[in-house]
Amino acid sequence: MTMTAVGHDETSAVPAREEFVARAAALVPLLRQHAAETEERRRLSDVSLAVITEAGFARLCVPVENGGYGQGIGTLAEVTAELGRGCASTAWVVGVNGQIAVTPKSPALNSFLYGERPDSWLCGSLNPTAGRVEPVDGGVRLTGRWGYASGCTHARWAMVLATGTVEEGGPTVHGLAVPMSDLTIDEDWRVVGMRGSGSHTIVASDVFVPAERIITSKGPRTAEQVILSGIGGSAMMAGPLLGATHGALDIVHQTLAAKKKIVYSRYPSAPEAVVTQLWLAEATQHLDTARLHTRRATDAIDGAVASGSAMSLVERARARMDVSTAVENCRQAMSRLLDIHGASGFAEANPLQRAWRDLEAAGRHGFLNTQLAREAYGRALIGLHEPIATNV
């Protein structure tokens, strides 16, 4: 097992990826037990939040020098794929937090965010038009409303984007780290899927943000920034959706183990029906395909980041297409699993319908637009170098 020193304590170590995945798998029964509460509250249950924090998932992607585990998108996706078997909303929050942590920031800003508490949870928004900044002595004044801030109800910090004009003139996009104590939450997250992610709107009203907590976009982005702020975000989202689908497969296996009869048929039990066997094979193959495409995308991303090299447009578009292919296969798998389980899977008391709703809602996130991914990949293969998808 590969071990790496954490922070300044040489006696501490970072476990290998397999250990983090095992930790996540061990939490599945407990997260499943509290999934209904998480959904009802539209935020993580206190128990779920406590156990994922204790397992080290808040600091999973936090830089090692700041007391974290320094993991990349691949580990994040595999961890959230396990957590999602128990609760997709919990997995989504872990994924968003990890994506913010892994995105390149200055050492000074990382110290602000994690220096005292590497287990701090973060939320954020990628919409630069949702906020405005006005320069003042020592920083900026920030005003705006940012929707879909997953995990904001328990976050310590928010990372948001805003537009404004710097002293030299010209519009710029700013990334700002704002303590949640300076913001308010408009609890408007009322949706049919991923309810427990608590993706409410966060609001800033003339908040002062000092210069040391501002990232100003000037000039071209680094290769690492291009990768992690674009396709890295899409790849992160695949994990919770894989988890929701795998969780549905778990439920179907439990149902089949009971050997109930298929109504209106002469089969003694559902497992003996050829159609059940065919559908189960098809669903499992779709899930396996989704995992393989996700792994190829995350391996490409992590490999480029580790080597410090850029990914070509074709490589980035292929990774984006891989993620979309994974999402589509998850949907196809879920459809077959619902066919096997039958109409009772849509009962409110049945967790299968929650997994279905979570997948269908999150799978339509803008970062996962499947047709846009196809067009982007096709254009790249043809040699049209202006990407039609802005997150490629």
Score class of each variant (00 low, 15 high):
Arg117Lys: 10
Gly378Ala: 07
Pro220Arg: 15
Thr390Ala: 15
Ser312Asp: 06
Asn110Gly: 12
Ala91Gln: 05
Leu30Cys: 01
Leu359Asn: 10
Thr294Glu: 10
Thr284Lys: 12
Ala81Asn: 06
Pro210Phe: 10
Leu352Phe: 07
Gly147Ser: 12
Met194Asp: 02
Gly72Pro: 02
Tyr148Glu: 01
Val6His: 09
Thr4Cys: 05
Thr11Arg: 14
Gly170Gln: 09
Pro135Asp: 08
Tyr114Pro: 03
Ile227Arg: 07
Ile382Ser: 05
Leu381Ala: 14
Leu381Ser: 10
Asn391Glu: 11
Arg132Ile: 01
Thr143Arg: 14
Gly366Cys: 02
Ala130Pro: 01
Val252Ile: 02
Asp250Glu: 08
Met311Thr: 05
Asn97Leu: 06
Asp137Leu: 11
Gly72Val: 04
Gly98Leu: 10
Val274Ala: 11
Gly363Trp: 02
Gly233Pro: 07
Thr325Tyr: 11
Ser265Ile: 00
His8Val: 04
Gly67Asp: 08
Arg195Phe: 00
Ala297Asp: 12
Ala204Ser: 04
Ile301Ser: 08
Ala91Leu: 09
Leu30Gln: 13
Pro128Lys: 03
Ala389Gln: 07
Glu187Pro: 03
Glu212Tyr: 09
Ser125Tyr: 03
Arg190Gln: 12
Phe112Val: 15
His200Thr: 01
Ala238Pro: 14
Ser111Met: 02
Gly345Cys: 03
Ser307His: 13
Ile388Met: 06
Val166His: 13
Ser309Arg: 15
Ala380Cys: 07
Gln33Met: 11
Ile301Asn: 03
Tyr264Ile: 01
Val6Gln: 10
Glu134Asn: 04
Ala355Arg: 14
Gly74Pro: 05
Gly196Ile: 04
Leu183Glu: 06
Ile215Tyr: 06
Ala101Lys: 04
Leu381Gly: 02
Val102Arg: 13
Asp250Thr: 06
Phe208Arg: 10
Trp121Phe: 15
Ala108Val: 13
Arg23Pro: 01
Glu315Gln: 15
Leu109Ser: 09
Ile382Thr: 12
Glu39Val: 01
Val263Lys: 11
Ser89Leu: 04
Arg41Asn: 03
Val314Ser: 04
Ser125Val: 01
Gly131Cys: 03
Thr294Ala: 11
Ile301Leu: 08
Trp92His: 15
Arg336Trp: 00
His253Asp: 12
Ser265Gly: 03
Met194Ser: 12
Arg266Ala: 11
Tyr264Phe: 10
Glu375Ile: 15
Ser197Phe: 01
Leu161Ile: 00
Ala36Thr: 13
Pro118Leu: 05
Gly84Arg: 07
Val93Ser: 04
Val136Met: 09
Thr11Ala: 02
Asp250Cys: 07
Leu292Phe: 07
Val327Pro: 12
Ser181Glu: 12
Pro29Gln: 06
Leu76Phe: 13
Leu313Ser: 11
Thr294Ser: 15
Leu83Asn: 08
Arg354Lys: 06
Lys105Arg: 15
Gly144Phe: 01
Asn66Ala: 13
Cys330Asp: 08
Val62Asn: 09
Ala91Tyr: 11
Ala376Asn: 13
Ala373Ser: 14
Thr2Ser: 12
Pro179His: 01
Leu338Phe: 06
Ile251Glu: 09
Ala36Asn: 05
Ala204Asp: 01
Gly68Phe: 06
Ser12Ile: 00
